[in-house]
Design a protein around this nucleic acid. Sequence first.
DNA 1: ATTAGCACTCTCGTTACGAGAGTGCTAAAA
DNA 2: TTTTAGCACTCTCGTAACGAGAGTGCTAAT
Lengths: 344, 344
Amino acid sequence: MTSLSERQKLILALVIRDYIETAQPVGSQRLVDKYGLEFSSATVRNEMAALTDAGYLRQPHTSAGREPTEDGYRYFVRQLMGHTDLPDTTKRMITHQFYQARQDIDQWMRLAASILAHQSQAASLVTAPHPEQGHFKHLELVSTFARQVLMVLVLAGGEVRQQMLVLAEPVSQGQLSSVADKINQRCQGMDAEGISALLPQMDALGQDVLKLTIEELDRSSAVLGGEVYRDGLTNVLGEPEFSEVDMARRALRVLEERSLLEDLLSRTILTSGIGGVQVLIGGEGTWEDLRHCSMVLARYGAPGLATGALGVLGPIRMAYGRTISTVRFVAGLLSDLVVEMHLE
Amino acid sequence: MTSLSERQKLILALVIRDYIETAQPVGSQRLVDKYGLEFSSATVRNEMAALTDAGYLRQPHTSAGREPTEDGYRYFVRQLMGHTDLPDTTKRMITHQFYQARQDIDQWMRLAASILAHQSQAASLVTAPHPEQGHFKHLELVSTFARQVLMVLVLAGGEVRQQMLVLAEPVSQGQLSSVADKINQRCQGMDAEGISALLPQMDALGQDVLKLTIEELDRSSAVLGGEVYRDGLTNVLGEPEFSEVDMARRALRVLEERSLLEDLLSRTILTSGIGGVQVLIGGEGTWEDLRHCSMVLARYGAPGLATGALGVLGPIRMAYGRTISTVRFVAGLLSDLVVEMHLE
DNA sequence: ATTAGCACTCTCGTTACGAGAGTGCTAAAA
DNA sequence: TTTTAGCACTCTCGTAACGAGAGTGCTAAT
C-alpha cells in the first residue's frame, strides 16, 4: 500500500479521464495511442496491474480494459485532480443571471438549481436557506372571512411564512392590526424562547397568534425546513449507467423523497462547515440506493444567520472537476446573497 | 365503421383489462380460460380480427396476441368504462388527510400531489391556484437594510407574494408603514387596471411600490403563474414501457420543463371548464414526447376567483378508472378549499 | 527497467434451431 | 347463418455454436 509512483498517478488519471469521457473500459494500447505516451503498452499493462492490486482499478472481466473503482475515483478527486475553477467568463455569466433575476428567494433558488443542472449535466438540488434559529422580524394579520385570519410572518432574513388561523369569534381588522402592532413592537428580533416568555402578557387572541409564531420559528430550525428545489432530473437518465432503469429509479427516489434526502443531508453536509465541498462517491458504503451514483454537496449561507444546502447527483463517472467548481461557485454566490438579505 | 356488437365490446374491454394488468399481448385462448367465456377461442379470434380491422386492437407481430391501440383505449375510456368512483373509505381517508394538514396552500398542494401519485402509482403534478385576474388585498413594507425594502403582497384568496425593492435613498420604517397604510386603504379589492388609475395620486415612493404591485398582479394572471408541485416521478420508471430509458426521459421532461408544461396545459385543460376530467392518450398526435404516455388532467378552483390544474402522467397502459376517479375527487376537494379561502 | 511477441481469455454479434404461443382459414356442427 | 374444432403456418424467444476482436499476462530479449 505504498504510495504511487508519478507514472502510476499519470496512468490512473488518464484512465479515469478516458473512462469519464467514453464510459468504456480502457485498454493499454488505446491509452498509449490516444495520449501519445512515451512508454509502451506493455509498461502500461504492468502499471495497470499494480494499480489494480492497489484497488484503484478493476477489470469488468478478464481481458477487458480497466475501469476505475470507487477508491480510484476517491484518490483521483482528493490527490490527483488539483484545484479546478470555472473559467471567468462562465463565472460572469452565472453572476449576471443572478443579478438579472427578480430579487426573490424563490427565483434565486430555482435559478441555482437550473444552473447546477445545466453546468454539470446532472440532477441538482437546492434547499432554501433557513435560519438555524428563527428570529422574528414582522407579523401581519389579515382578516379574510368571519373567523378566519391569514397570518403572514416575516423572519429575519426575509423568509416569509403564511399560516391560517381560525378564531373562536369574529374580530375586526382594526383589532387584528392593533394586536399585530403590539407584537411587532415587543418581539423585534426575538427567537422562539424569548417570545415564549412574553406569552403571559398577552390577551387570548395575542396568545393564539404567538403560539403559532413560536411553532413556525421552531419549524424553521428543523433540518430541512424549507422548500427543496430540483432540476435536471432527466439529464441523468441519459447516462449509460442508468440504462438499467432500476438504478435510475433508486437514485432519483433519494432526491424525491424528503425523508431520504433529510437523512442524507443531515449525515453529510450539515455536519460540515460552510464553504467546503463534499464529494460522495458510490454511496460511500452507506447508501445502497446511491451505489452507482456520486453526489457533490456543499452548504451555503452564513452561520448564525441562515444556511442551506445544494448539490448535484450524477453517475459515478462524473466530470468531478467541473462539477465541484460549479457547486463551490454557486454556493459562494448564494452565501453572498444570504448575507446581503440579512444585513439590517 | 359500424358500431360494435355487445360481444365485441365485452372482448375489447377484457383485452384492455388484461393488458393493463399484465403488459403482455393477450391471446384468444388465454382470454377464454381466464375469464370463463361462454364461447370458444375461435369465436374470440374472429371478433378480435374485426376489432383489429376497426382499429381498436393491434398485433405487435403476426401471431402474437392482441394489444389495444390508442383508439382502443379511447373507445374504452369514453364508451365502455362507465362512471367509476372511489370507494367511500378511500374518499374519507383522503379528505381526512387534507383537514389534518396545516392550513397552508403549500402543504395542501404537496399533499394533493402526493395523494395523486400514490393512488395512481404514476407521476403527478399540481399547480398552485392563481386568480385569473389578481386582486389586491393587503400590502406590507418591511425595511431590511438601508435602501432595501421587503414588500409582501397578499392577494385576494390568500396567495402571498414577496418582492425586494431597492430605493433611491433610505426611508424610515415609519414612512414605509404610512405609505403601505395609504395603499391598503385605497386599493382594497382592486385589479391591476384599477391600481394603474391611482398612480398619479401617489408620491415617488408610492408609485414605485404600486408599479411593482401591478407587475405582480399581472404575473398572477399568466397561465402558469405559481409554483408547480410534482410527485411520484419515480413511480413511472418501474413500468415496463419505460424500460427504454429514452421514453422515460422524454416523458419526464414534459413535467420538468416549465415551457413544455405550459404549452401542454394551455392547449388542453385551460381551455376547458372546471370539473371535467380530460384524458390524453398517447400524446393525441400532438405531443411527440408523450407518444407512449397518457395523462389525466383536470382543472380545479372557482371561475372568477382562482383556478389551478392537476393531473397524472403514466404509461398508456394505465388503470384509467381508478386514476380518473382520483383526479376528479382531488380536483373537487381542492375546488372546495379554494372557495373557502376566497370567502370574504 | 522496458518492451516485443505470443498464447490465452472473454465479450459480442451473428447464425441456427427448436419450443411455444397464437393466428387465420376451412370444414363440420349447431 | 353462426359457432367451433382442427390444423397448418408464422413469429418470438431462449439457447447453443462460432468466429472476430480486443485486451491481458507472461516470457524472453533488449
